[in-house]
Write a protein that binds this DNA or RNA. Sequence first.
DNA 1: CATCAGGGCCCTG
DNA 2: CAGGGCCCTGAT
Length: 325
Amino acid sequence: MNSKTMALDLYTERVLSPTPPFSFNGTVHKPSHFPTPDTFFEPDYYWQSLRFYDQLLGIKLINKGSITKPEILLQIYSSSDLSPSFVEAVAKEIEYRFDMRSDIKPFIEIALKDSVLGPTLERWNGMRASTPYSLYEFTVVATVLQNTTVRRTVQMMDNLFSTFGHEIVFDAKKLSGFWLPNSIHEVAEQSLRDLKLGYRAKTLKRQADFFSSQRMNMEKLRSMDLDELKEKLLEIYGIGPASVQYLLFEVFHHYGAFTHISPWEQKIYSMLLFNEKQVEVSRIVNELEKRFGKWKMLAMHYIFEDLFWLRKNKSIPWLEELIRL
DNA sequence: CATCAGGGCCCTG
DNA sequence: CAGGGCCCTGAT
């Protein structure tokens, strides 16, 4: 760590009311994601660090409601007093990142009648695509996922957090906080390479340069339509067809964004939808379009997370082969 | 021991 | 638009 552990002893609360149906656990925790030291989950409780403007905050979410009557207690931990308007802005940001305000009822109607999706609703009804991260932070995560195995991705993230991150303690939880892009902007590429980032060192440098030299207009990006936004995101160095897919879905909640399928995902979807090892990408996309239309990526997300959740309890041999931990 | 591909992307020809 | 190269690691 490049600084001492920071204690965040003050906190403020707000009650959030997501649109029903809303799955707290399915939305704040994604079994398919690799673990990072900046979040912590247990059923009905969730902690994360949040870098928001110049502040590093602790966030705790507590499930106080149900799927049909959702209610979440948001606690914001800080080292100094926060103005009411700042607190409101944090609450809005959390609502956006966990997609608490969109209406997914039409999707649930379709899902209930679907043979593959129907059963997953018993566990995940109301689940949203979400991320704890800002656009910059998610871009980093997407970058360290590229062309490697999950084990190395985890190693790279840990190295980055322990070098550039900041440790915070709040509510008896010790978590890492994300760094600002300019702290990477300032270091030499070689010192990034020393963190075993390989050729990604250059990519992370260019991204840090990009994000520290300008403030992205997030309001504008969030209001763009799919094609316009996609074009914009592809301008980020190191973001290509695979990564942009994750960004569109998890950061911006475009639930129909499903054009790129990587080979390992193709195999998983083939098994889940057709019970075959290798189905053509076009056939997969056509099938999803037919069954779920503009909700097709969200539909796959339900199936995907359910599968990884299942895997926690019992090993799924064909899946283990594909995810290569 | 050597070789190789991996939860892509950029760049070149 | 196809294909080589990229850091490092563990699997073979």
